[in-house]
Design a protein around this nucleic acid. Sequence first.
RNA 1: GGCUACCUAGCUCAGCUGGCUAGAGCAUUCGGUUCAUACCCGAAAGGUCGUGGGUUCGACUCCCUCGGUAGCCA
Length: 653
Amino acid sequence: MSEQQTFYITTPIYYPSGKFHIGTAYTTVASDAIARYKRLKGFDVRFLTGMDEHGQKIQEKAQESGMHPQDYVNEIAESAKKLWDTMDISYNDFIQTTEKRHVDAVEKIFQKFLNNGDIYIGEYEGLYCVPCESYYTETQLMEGKCPDCGRDVQKVNEESYFFNMKKYADRLLAYYEDNLEFIEPESRKNEMINNFIKPGLEDLSVSRTSFDWGIKVPGNPKHVIYVWVDALSNYITSLGYGSDNEELFNKYWPADVHVVGKDIVRFHTIYWPIFLMALELPLPKKIFAHGFIMMKDGKMSKSKGNVVYPEMLIERYGLDATRYFLLRELPFGQDGVFSPESFVERTNFDLANDLGNLLNRTVSMMNKYFDGEIPTENLQETEFDAALKSHAESVRIRYEESMEKMQFSVVLSEIWSLVSRTNKYIDETSPWVLAKDEADRNKLAAVMNNLAESLRHIAVLIQPFMTNAPKQIMEQLGLDDKLLAWDTIETFGNVIPRNIKVVEKGTPIFPRLDAEIEVAYIREQMQGSVKTTQQEESTSVEAPNTEEISIDDFMKIDLRVATVLACEPVAKAKKLLKLQVDLGYEQRQVVSGIAEHYKPEELVGKKVIVVANLKPVTLRGELSQGMILAGSHDGILTLATVDPKLANGAQVK
RNA sequence: GGCUACCUAGCUCAGCUGGCUAGAGCAUUCGGUUCAUACCCGAAAGGUCGUGGGUUCGACUCCCUCGGUAGCCA
C-alpha cells in the first residue's frame, strides 16, 4: 500500500478572555471544513486547535475571580472543547500552552535561539496598555490613551530579550518570492512587505519581567517568554517537536495551512517563518488570513449590543444552518456582514425551500409512484437526463478547484446550482404527468433514480460544511452511509443498489422559519448581551473621586439650552460632527466628538445643553464655539438632553 | 501622513491574462406547475460598469487625475 498523503491544518490558539463569539467559531468551522474535505479525499489529516493561556491579563483575571491561573484557563479550555464538540469540529488535538509538553519544548526552542545567538538581552521601553497587553508608540496613541480600548497607558521600561529579526529578512523575502501562494489573500502579503520588511524589520522583544504567568526563560527565571515565541510554537510542540518522540512531527510537519484571522497575519507571516528558519525547520506551505464577521454597525462589540454567540444560533436553528450560513454568506478572506435578515433568508431559501424541499418532494414521489422503492431497473432515459448528469459532473470539478482555494462561499454556490438544477429537472420531466400513462412507466423510473442519485451527490458534496444533513438525506433515501464516500460520485448513476426503500414519510430536514419572528428573536438575543453587561456594570460605576469645587466655581460655567439646527460630519475625522446650534440669542457652530455614537440626521431638532462660555477652538479646521454635554458609560456616549419646554438660551444651573 | 485595495442592476456581489447583445442571488412584475416545507420552474423589467482624461482597431477589464470607502503602518 502506498503511503497516505498527509495534511496538517491548524486554527490559531485562542485567548481565554471570555465567551467565544461567532468570529472565533467562524475560524474554527472554516478550518474544519478543509479538514473534512481533505479526509474525504483520502488524506491523512491532522487538525489542531487550542488555547493560548499565558500572559498578564490572564493572571489578573484569574486573581479577580480568586482562582489559580491554571484552574482559570482549564475551565475555559473545557468550555471551548464543549463548544467545538457542539459544533462538530473534527480536531485531532487540542493544545493548551500551559501543558507540560508545550512548556518543555518552548524552553528548548528558546535555549536554541540563545545558543545560536538569535536572541540577545537589551532594554525595552514602551507605553503599555495592561488590558490589551499591547505596547504602543507615542504616535499611535489617541489623545494619549490606548488606541484600542481608550484607557490609560503606562510608560514601561524593562529589561528584555530581543530576537534578531534583521538577520533573516532577506531569506524571508526570498521565500515569499519562491512561494507565491504562501500568503493568501495576496493583498496581505503586500501589506507585510510594504509596512514591515521594506522599511527594515525591527528586532522583536520576546520576554517580559513585569509578570510571571508564563514560561520562564531558561537560566533567567526573572523573565517569562513573551507571547509570540510561546504561542506560535504550539504548531510544532503539539506534534512532539523537541520531545523524545518526534514521530508525529516528522510525519506532519511542515503544516499545509495555518488558518488565521487578518489581525494576526504579521505574526504568522513574518515572525513565525523566521523562528522556524532559526530552528532550521521547513516553513509552512500556506498562511490563509480570513476576514472578520462584521455587523451592520461595524465591528462586534458588547458595548454596541451586537454580539452574536454561536450557541444561540445552534440551539434555535441547528448546527447545519449555522455552519452553512458562516461559510456561504462571507467570502472567505474578506470581511462579511452578519444580519438577522440574511441568516433567516439563507436558512429559508437555500436550506428549507431549495434543498430540504427537494428531498421532501423526491421522497414523497418515490412513495406515491413506486411504493417507496428507488427504481434501479427498466430505466428509460428522458431527454433531460444528460443535462442533469453533465451539470453534476461540472459542479464536482469546479467544487474541487474552489475548495483548493478555500473559496467556501463559491463552493457552496456551486453545490446549490446542482440543487437548483435538480429542482428544474423535476419541472422538466413532470413526473406527475409521466405517472398518468403506463407507457411512461420506465421513464418515470429513470427520473426517480436520477433524483435519488442527484440528492446523493449533493449529500456527499456538503459533507465538509454540514455534519447532520448528509446523514439525514441518506437516511430518508434509505441509503447506506458508505455511499457518502467521495469516489462514489466520480460517475453519476449505477451506484444505488437494488431494493432500496425510502422512508415512508419524509420529515423536512430544514424547517421553514417565520422571518419576522426569527429576525426579531435574533436581534433580541444580540441586544441581550448588552443589557446584561450594563446591569453588571451599573453596580460598579466608579464612585466620584474628584476635587470639590465651590458654588462660585460652578457658576463660572455658562450652560445654555440650544436646539441643533443642522449637523454634518467633519471631513477626515471619524469622531467629529459639526453642529449649528440655536442658543436663542445667537447661533453658533460647535464641533463635538460624538460621530461614533450619533448620526448627523439623528441630532437635528434635538435640544441639548451647551457650555456657552468655553474658549473657542479650531478642530480639524473647524471653529468650535462651545461644547455639548454628554454622559458616557461603558463606552456608550449619550447626549444630555432637556425638556423641550425649555426655551433656547435658557440658563442651566 | 505613507502604503495597498475597492467603488458593476433597488440590495449583496461574480466578471482571469482587454474582444460576441455586462452576469448571479435576493427584491419587483408577469406567467407555468402541483410531487413538495404557500414550495418549485420560466419570463420580463432593471446598469452612462464612481468622475474626467489617456493607450488601443477595440476597455468593466491596462495607465493617469479627482472623488468616495476600507485595510495595514511592529
